[in-house]
Design a protein around this nucleic acid. Sequence first.
DNA 1: AAATAATTTAGAACTATTCTTAGAATAATT
DNA 2: AATTATTCTAAGAATAGTTCTAAATTATTT
Lengths: 151, 151
Amino acid sequence: MSSETTETTASKAAEDFGGLRMTKQRQVVYEVLTDLSKGHPTASEVFVNAKERMPSISLATVYNCLETLTGAGAVRQVHIDREATRYCANLQPHAHFYCTDCDKVFDIGLEAGADAASVWSLPPGCRVEEMQVAIRGVCGACEKCRQGHAA
Amino acid sequence: MSSETTETTASKAAEDFGGLRMTKQRQVVYEVLTDLSKGHPTASEVFVNAKERMPSISLATVYNCLETLTGAGAVRQVHIDREATRYCANLQPHAHFYCTDCDKVFDIGLEAGADAASVWSLPPGCRVEEMQVAIRGVCGACEKCRQGHAA
DNA sequence: AAATAATTTAGAACTATTCTTAGAATAATT
DNA sequence: AATTATTCTAAGAATAGTTCTAAATTATTT
């Protein structure tokens, strides 16, 4: 009982999320999501991976599970342009950088001590529930690669 | 010639946008957008309004025009969750607040002197092309209304 | 164990958007 | 001004992601 509090709560979180009934398929979907978290998979990608672990699972169930897990706050949706919704088990406040060259999505953390909402002049009296920040551009690796071609 | 520089450039912009051929339908679509800018209309809403001004216009053309205008930088797409794309003629950097109660979208400006990207710890070497900030929550008016009911 | 409720499955249905193709309008060239 | 080339529009078909529906399965409560 050493790594209990040093690691993130991701691994134990699978068991209990606000009284959510953890069915086998929800467990599988959640595991896929934590395993592929860096990949920000779409529902279909989750489906493919879930099917390897549980061949009987259906796409509709994957959608159901993703919705349930999102509703329970175990998982976040990621929206970039109007592309297929991606899913992300990183619950820390963060933005998403989408590289138009390699099509990858990167998590972008907050600067130390910064608050994402603070730069926006929100009208008084409104209540913020969620914030989606999507940044499009070219990532460092692709940018470097481009310069190479140009030379 | 007094209001020339005091107002935004919105009105004169309709005529010439980076050598864009300003066809009658593009003009109509652009005008609808500047007129309904506060409403953040979807393509279908633009279509309905454009049809009043030009009954022969088709939905496909509205989509084409919106894409062309977006490409030319005359108009911005607004993405909120995975709802239908909305369009916005406000080119100033701003975020969008979507009220889950009244379903309205509000433009949110930057705090004086603030830079939207500054709070995010972007990896070195990457190039930012666009930033979409969507804030979901309850607007001031709806929040006030709720408190009234609770009393 | 029986009854009730929640979940899964498979496929149909839906919606926003893109694609296709033909024809119309506009611009360029002679 | 006539001809050719290019771009744009229109209408509907096609597509992709997602949601809905109904029946079957699984879990929970009585």
